[in-house]
Design a protein around this nucleic acid. Sequence first.
DNA 1: TCCAGGAACTTGATCGTTCCAATCCTGCCT
DNA 2: AGGCAGGATTGGAACGATCAAGTTCCTGGA
Lengths: 331, 331
Amino acid sequence: MPQKVTIATVARRAGVSRQTVSNVLNSPHVVREQTRQRVQEAIAALGYRTNQAARQMRTGRSRLIAVRIEPTRDGINGSVLDRFLHGLAETASTAGYRVMLYTAVDDEQEIREYDDLLGTYDLDAFVLTGTTRRDPRTAWLTGRGVPFVTFGRPWDDPTLHPWVDVDGADGTAQAARRLLALGHRRIGFVGWPVGSGVGDDRRLGWEHTLRAAGVDPTGLDHCTEDGIPEGERVARDLLTAARPPTALICASDSLALGALQAVRVADPAVPVIGFDDTPVAAALGLTSVCQPLHEAAVRCVELLTGLLDATPRQPHPQVLLKPRLVLRQTA
Amino acid sequence: MPQKVTIATVARRAGVSRQTVSNVLNSPHVVREQTRQRVQEAIAALGYRTNQAARQMRTGRSRLIAVRIEPTRDGINGSVLDRFLHGLAETASTAGYRVMLYTAVDDEQEIREYDDLLGTYDLDAFVLTGTTRRDPRTAWLTGRGVPFVTFGRPWDDPTLHPWVDVDGADGTAQAARRLLALGHRRIGFVGWPVGSGVGDDRRLGWEHTLRAAGVDPTGLDHCTEDGIPEGERVARDLLTAARPPTALICASDSLALGALQAVRVADPAVPVIGFDDTPVAAALGLTSVCQPLHEAAVRCVELLTGLLDATPRQPHPQVLLKPRLVLRQTA
DNA sequence: TCCAGGAACTTGATCGTTCCAATCCTGCCT
DNA sequence: AGGCAGGATTGGAACGATCAAGTTCCTGGA
């Protein structure tokens, strides 16, 4: 049974005091270069690793970031979170942090989880995926002074807290420009009900681009809840109208999938573009707007480490990333 | 600034010693009922939460379980891990544990991560998703005496370590019986190259069921790496053979998706059944074999807590779950 | 009456690190 | 030679829990 290697073991071997070893690790600049090297050699030779629990007890910092893992909402969008999580875990690791998961079924329970995670595990920060208007969770965290970043803008007021988001309007604008370039004018939009920040944003990109090209978007869009059958129904309505669109942009891949089925019946030549670039889109050759999830994760970690290291209160950082249109068979 | 609530605060308020409070939390049976209640009231009134770092320093247990999050392999199967992770986080939480993520690109790096996680965070246990023959990771963990469970059998020797798995052979057998019931005899199989435990297992279920029904499976199966184009190619080969199958079972939804395209060209009436019940399958109406991922996660946590609580070495527990055939349009 | 034995509770030590204040050098200036 | 500034290093205390070894109190049997 090899004796456990602590900071004292290293100190003895290097012929210095515990504190000096600690300084080598945490404030190398106060240690003489020659001593620093001697200590580093001892650390390497002994395979020393700082005990996080002991450090945490003294400093109150756990070097842990919490992320909620959701119960696979509609199925198709599930793998979006997957990619984001991977990026998060990877980046956090290189920044010296680890990612911890938690679950919750509603906001109230989620806040209780915050309380527990902060109380018993001393969590350093939280990443929230998606926020609602007047979100009680962000209010709670802000009130407690807990560092956090959201992936998704606070739609009421973008200056409320730090966030990273993908420019949905730019995504649908890219889609619209693509279809305009293909010669289409009457470009339809299958969107979500007015009121959701994300949905409104995506509609806006389509609308502005059409107007900029001199096309009146009136009557070219329809709203519905997310889902494949919903998308099919709405697309069918649009395509059987008096002056039907000759191409369709959808607010999600689920809607686009339904739209594809409607198109197949009405007019297979009508191009369809989805949103999120889910595996389903790739599998079916659906042209779709791809969110840079890995980069979003990287930026989230950057913001968090920034919040954790810098003590002075700075204005909340905001990062807006551009999505990318992935061209496939359907457009 | 409210004073931090420690075990000493609770002790003072309840009029007992620190140790008694500790006993109420960890060994309630040694405390008199009346005292226990008094302490519990103090705990509730003060909102006390045990400081995990302090406990960990003394006990060496972190109440943390590590799971690797993979970089979304082929895209379609990504969301499988998603659902598993959610179940894991949820169950672990109710058992008093938390889930930590880590990433790695190869076995060697993964073992270094183990070393780091154990050394600096005192991780209690690991969950590995998928193992290979002669897996160096399980060997390393076993050698160090670190508790772990794999989701996926050790194919060399099922008694090597504790595991939870889904009975793939039973899944393809269900699929084959379904097709037999529909009147099919010449049922083809699109599988993975011989040698992968999972792939061989899934093939076996198909093969045995056909033989049991008096059908000779010779020439009815083809192998290929996983992927949509691969599946299409192999399915086309099968369907254009001298005596083509009248129905197809595939080792994955990716292969099934390719097969669907081949079928559409050759003979749209040929039923296709996939494996994994991914969102893509649901979106396309593909009949597929569904793995009970949530239950698998629950059982993993059960095995782990069993390993962590019981000191005496018991034979490695093994859990084999039955999948479920989800009927949709394609079969 | 006395004491063994056990249940109930308490006290001091300890885990490994970092904080804080004190001490030790070293070279430079007078 | 002595004083001194400032960097480099050290030793004790503390973080908040649990462990191990007490102490107190009570019950019942000789």
